[in-house]
Design a protein around this nucleic acid. Structure first.
Lengths: 336, 336
DNA sequence: TTGTAAGCGTTATCAT
DNA sequence: ATGATAACGCTTACAA
């Protein structure tokens, strides 16, 4: 930078003013500076900048599991928003690396990270999350902690669940079972609530519906499907509402093994619309979340927080769309 | 840090010595410092550190497409290696953000990144890559530029292709077609070479095999499959060797639409073993790459480079394993 | 073994 | 409108 100043015949402060538009500079001098920058291929040292500015222009992205395409899509959204503001995104994959949660805190305090986007997974602990938020700005994605309202970005899980359930009921199904997610997670609660709303709306008693508690894992989906379908053929459910695609896939696999054909003998729906949901046989009917947009929004929210522009959740829930495909059909002895 | 020094009754340099083990310190004073650190919850300012050390303890990870699980797995491997050394990994997704390639260069020069791991995709330009490597250490993954030997981590594509082709030939197939990858990519060339080796080994003339040139895209797989299967039933191939899973899936979809049953009438194999390859119907026979390990290795190589420990590719090719599943069977009129 | 002090490359305050 | 100059928080000769 000194070199640039010398080369342009001005002082370092003038160079700084030009580079940051932070002071009045005569047109000709500005041009000379810009020129010197070109010639010398000068690039500001960002370490020095952040030291002075007390901000790293970097945010952290905590991902439970990158191999999950839903998270990957979210991450891309975050990246998009960040790179638009020249902010770097650092990956934190605690599960993959066996890091303690407090590491994020350390990063926050050491000024390497200005804020954190936290994509919560099944193993998230509300307590440690709360600690984190005290250390610096944190935006939660795909989860909420009901009691403390932290800034968060979530989609309309209840609506999605209600609508996909409605679709199933519209086909005439009356004996339906739910394979739910972990009761501790907000998303799981919301989805279950959505299913119940649909049942009530169709004149069914929500409390009469069998709910099998799962954990969002594929293998569990298979086991619970087996359990749900154990009874005599005339009494067992003709449709399975699975709280996520992974469990739905498990259910699909079980059905195949058990010789139950989908959708002829059994309808199955999921939630998430993983990219390969439409590649399965049969193609899975499910609910799509706008993963990329959520990531983008979350990052934008975080940036607002960093500039004290906004405080808590200003936006509503994220929209969700039912993807009607082949895994749902009217029940064998359909009511019509 | 001054506070810590004061609190411990020593000078700042002593504190620094303790924190970095970079100087001799009396046991009792060291203890006092450590204590003060605890009490004051002191965390070193990393911006200042990197300014002084001229290194950011951060590497960049360029990913063509995070939604591709193969890349996601690689990324996790990189993360693992990096976090073990307390190095941060920043995500660069040029495709997602429309960034120019030169951005990476800027990051390298501005000292925000110490080095880069470059997962190359179909759209990588060798020229710009070469520029990059001049700006700082870059490790290439899953691709090589034959003429310049840059440090790189790749798996044994040729062997994988040869073995999976062998498996197909072992089943008795004699009329086989190849759906290849983009001819400009090293992986595509290697896979094709592997197929040819298998043919030669089985006494077939490699030059007589129909090779359809694809681009690793799913839709292309479908189109090329249609093309390959266009002839009269008695002359058309009984097996399709697809250079990656995505194109194999396209082929599978086309077959379904065209009423060609797999594997009864047609065998299909892919390459990559995407996580859902085994969820398809039929389950896809393919070749698995050790994605996570490759990422880990790449990061380790980069760190060695940064410490001038090693220079170019010291290790061999990464092993690869054929996953035998349901999409391959003996041809209809099998030779046995 | 420990302390003093000189930078690292910026930004920002203050005179000019 | 511009230029000295003092921080920012740390590392590291060099001196004691």
């Amino acid at each position: 930078m000194k070199d640039v100043a010398r080369h342009a015949g001005v002082s370092v402060s003038t160079v700084s003013y030009v580079l940051n538009n932070s002071g009045p500079v005569a047109a000709d001098r500005r041009a000379r500076v810009l020129d010197a920058v070109q010639v010398l291929k000068y690039t500001p040292n960002e370490s020095a900048r952040s030291l002075k500015r007390r901000s790293a222009s970097t945010i952290g992205l905590v991902v439970p599991d990158l191999a999950n395409p839903f998270y990957a899509l979210l991450a891309e959204g975050v990246e998009r928003a960040a790179s638009a503001r020249d902010v770097l995104v650092v990956l934190c994959a605690p599960e993959a690396t066996g890091e303690s949660e407090s590491l994020h805190g350390r990063l926050l305090r050491s000024q390497r990270l200005d804020g954190i986007i936290y994509l919560s997974g099944a193993s998230t602990s509300p307590a440690s999350l709360l600690d984190l938020t005290r250390l610096g700005p944190v935006v939660l994605v795909d989860e909420q902690i009901p009691s403390f309202d932290l800034p968060s970005v979530v989609s309309d899980n209840r609506r999605g669940a209600r609508e996909v359930a409605q679709h199933v009921l519209d086909q005439g199904h009356e004996r339906v079972a739910v394979i739910a997610g972990p009761p501790g997670l907000w998303t799981a609660q919301q989805r279950l609530a959505g299913y119940r709303e649909a049942f009530a709306g169709a004149g069914l008693d929500p409390d009469a519906i069998p709910v099998l508690v799962g954990d969002y894992q594929q293998s569990t989906g298979g086991k619970l499907a087996a359990q749900a379908l154990a009874g005599p053929a005339m009494k067992r459910p003709t449709a399975l509402l699975c709280a996520n695609d992974l469990m739905a896939i498990g259910a699909l696999e079980y059905s195949r093994e058990a010789g139950i054909s989908v959708p002829e003998q059994l309808s199955v729906v999921g939630f998430d619309d993983l990219p390969f949901a439409s590649l399965l046989t049969p193609r899975l009917t499910t609910v799509r979340q706008a993963a990329g947009d959520m990531g983008f929004q979350a990052a934008s929210l975080l940036f607002d927080l960093l500039e004290n522009k906004a405080d808590t959740e200003p936006h509503g829930l994220f929209p969700v769309t039912v993807q009607i495909r082949d895994s749902v059909a009217p029940p064998a002895g359909g009511r019509s």
